[in-house]
Design a protein around this nucleic acid. Structure first.
Length: 643
RNA sequence: GCUGGCGUAGCUCAACGGUAGAGCACCUGAUUUGUAAUCAGGCGGUUGUAGGUUCGAUUCCUAUCGCCAGCUCCA
């Protein structure tokens, strides 16, 4: 190896000597990289760089392909620049701010007096196409901060100046393509021609630096992929998400509705209420098995209670208030204060603990008008809420039991992909350092002992204690929070709760707030979208629909219907004078799990011809056998089923 | 709450300054039908609400309510 050369290697070990200053692209060629046309950037000693950057010393060079996650992010980031370039060309008075890559694409925030219209988006996309076709080289250069500030000031980009002023390094990098220059860490694709598949999706307002106090910018969202095929697949997925939207299915399946008279508060129709109540029934069965006691508590309580609990200070903006007998009252947004009253009404012994109080009480929370959405964020709802009062020594065991309940429940619904977050002490909090340290280490311990991988969300705990949040990924790979376990040392203090220990001394119990499904409303939304309206048999509002071929089978159908209902199945009969195909189509559109066809043949053999949704036509069976098939599926979840 | 978009028949959409139209749904009749749409006829709208401009408003303007996409928030 001569003085002017350096040794570069592939991650797999093969190496070659090249001149100092060789570009990364040439280095990859020298290493015999065959798919060089698909390489978009490279990692030099695992540090992402542009293909045009030069090699300064011996290094391991790994190509980054357009079809890798890293490559995709670079493409998206470069597409964000492409968009900013197009915007500046069309609307030169616009100022650029920031344009990061996000989960499903990218966005760029602009400062502009007039908001962008959907028409503008189309024009911007067109210009993006033009700039991409021109295949402009994307060139990086490093300059001093001062130089960069001077540059952006000269072109009137005040936000860029502000950003650079906040960067601690002495030098910053700029990327230029044609007449557009942007501040950026990089790396980027080598030229705009590498961007072949992108689409602008929406425009929305967004606050500068994410703060409500700052001015609002115009954000344009877009997405980009390595190939048009992948873009098409992504857009198809968005269509699928629309098809599964619980608001659409809720209407089509006649489950619930919303009315302007009670904004963001669902009205459940008979079928929706049935699903709702079956979910609650399932949770009640679980409570039986795990030693919970259900209570019922008032809807409207004296404001003094909420002052004592701390809600008045911390949660007032989200509460509804009223007055009766000249007393200030509040509609409950949570159940915990009521449960504290119940706990505190008698002297409790350590022998009474843990005491697990469950409550499906309806909660009302005033949510700001812009934040509500379908069933996922409502103002009136209930939770599978419970509070466990226990001794400090019991925390670990109780948390473990809740985790068992959680996982069993999520498995049942097919939510097998989970993400678990440990939220630790936030800036505003009550309680001693020692208490927090102990509580946090207890939760960590439980998770570790069970081998549950989790992420730390530092500072994300409640003000009264740390928590574990349980999220799932649905069929569309969207993340939703369902369950939560929160340790609370503050509420027992505020309500001066105690128990008498084995030595006869009074001690402070710990309170654990926990929910499995979270809000039932929200869970229903998630479940509907997850299963696209095809509820599991035990939850389906109508489990079986009888369909006759002609009027000759009506008597038999009534007979079978009575038998099915007596067995505890939710069945109905379609006796209309319509063609079979028509009736079946309607039953399928209603996503009814079993369609039971009966013509003269079935009457003669005392059978039904079942058609199972998703599985097609099955061989005719006797009614008793059909009931057994169905109950075999329902029993493990709901028990016997026969009333 | 903030920014933008949208509110026409139960649903999906059309008409966009000259007092609203289609398909499906619904109702009625005919058809007795074997695994995702039988045919015919009929009913159905003060175009979210309230003002304004205009000879005339579904269409333009203002306010308001609701919904949607984001932002912020989410014990």
């Amino acid at each position: 190896m001569s003085a002017g050369t350096v040794r570069i290697a592939k991650p797999t070990g093969e190496f070659v000597d090249v001149e100092v200053g060789t570009t990364v692209a040439d280095a990859l060629r020298a290493l015999g990289e065959r798919r060089v046309g698909e390489v978009i950037a490279a990692a030099v000693d695992e540090h992402l760089v542009d293909l045009s950057s030069s090699i300064g010393g011996g290094a391991v060079v790994r190509p980054v392909f357009s079809d890798s996650r890293e490559g995709l992010e670079i493409i998206r980031h470069s597409t964000a620049h492409l968009m900013a370039h197009a915007v500046k060309r069309l609307f030169p008075e616009t100022q650029v701010t920031i344009g990061p890559v996000i989960e499903s694409g990218f966005y760029y925030d602009f400062k502009r007096e007039r908001p962008f219209t959907p028409d503008d988006l189309e024009r911007i996309e067109q210009v993006m196409q033009e700039i991409a076709s021109a295949n402009l080289a994307v060139e990086r250069r490093e300059v001093s901060k001062l130089e960069a500030i001077e540059f952006f000031r000269s072109v009137g980009e005040a936000y860029k100046v502000e950003i650079i002023e906040g960067i601690p390094d002495d030098r910053v990098s700029l990327y230029a393509q044609g007449d557009f220059t942007d501040l950026c860490r990089g790396p980027h694709v080598p030229s705009t021609g590498r961007l072949k598949a992108f689409k602008l999706t929406s425009v929305a307002g967004a606050y500068w630096r994410g703060s409500e106090k700052n001015e609002m910018l115009q954000r344009i969202y877009g997405t980009a992929f390595a190939s048009p095929k992948e873009l098409k697949a992504h857009l198809a997925m968005l269509e699928e998400a629309k098809r599964r939207d619980h608001r659409r299915l809720g209407r089509d399946l006649n489950l619930f509705s919303f009315h302007p008279e009670a904004p963001a508060s669902p009205f459940f129709h008979p079928k929706g209420a049935l699903v709702y109540n079956e979910l609650v029934a399932y949770i009640r069965r679980l409570y039986d098995q795990f030693g919970y006691q259900e209570v019922l508590t008032p809807q409207v309580l004296d404001v003094d209670l909420w002052k004592r609990s701390g809600h008045y200070d911390n949660y007032r903006d989200n509460m509804y208030f009223t007055e009766a007998d000249e007393r200030a009252m509040a509609v409950k947004p949570m159940n915990c204060p009521s449960h504290c009253l119940l706990y505190g009404m008698a002297t409790r012994s350590y022998r009474d603990l843990p005491m697990r109080l469950a409550d499906f009480g309806r909660l009302h929370r005033y949510e700001r008008s812009g934040v509500t959405a379908g069933l996922t964020r409502v103002r009136s709802f209930s939770q599978d809420d419970a509070h466990i009062f226990c001794t400090p020594d019991q925390i670990e065991g109780e948390v473990g039991r809740v985790i068992d309940m959680l996982f069993r429940t999520y498995d049942l619904f097919g939510f097998t992909e989970r993400r678990i977050y440990l939220g630790t002490r936030p800036e505003k909090s009550t309680g001693s350092d020692a208490m927090w340290a102990r509580a946090e280490s207890t939760l960590t311990q439980v998770l570790q002992n069970r081998g549950i991988t989790h992420e730390l969300h530092a500072g994300d705990g409640a003000f009264y204690g740390p928590k574990i949040d349980f999220c799932i990924l649905d069929a569309m790979r969207r993340e939703w929070q369902l369950g939560t376990i929160q340790l609370d040392f503050s509420m027992p203090e505020r309500f001066d709760l105690h128990y008498v220990n084995s030595a006869g001394e009074e001690e402070r119990p710990v309170m654990i707030h926990r929910a499995l499904l979270g809000s039932i409303e929200r869970f229903m939304a998630i479940l509907i979208e997850h299963c696209a309206g095809d509820f599991p048999l035990w939850l389906a509002p109508v489990q079986m629909r009888l369909v006759t071929v002609t009027e000759d089978q009506h008597a038999y159908a009534e007979d079978v219907l009575a038998t099915l209902r007596a067995a505890g199945l939710r069945a109905e009969a379609d006796l209309r004078k319509e063609k079979l195909g028509f009736k079946i189509r309607e039953a399928e559109l209603q996503k009814i799990p079993f369609v039971l066809v009966m013509g003269d043949k079935e009457v003669a053999t005392r059978t039904v011809a079942p058609r199972r949704r998703g599985a097609g036509t099955l061989a005719p069976v006797g009614v008793a056998e059909l009931i057994e098939t169905a109950m075999t599926e329902i029993r493990p979840v709901m028990g016997g089923g026969v009333p």
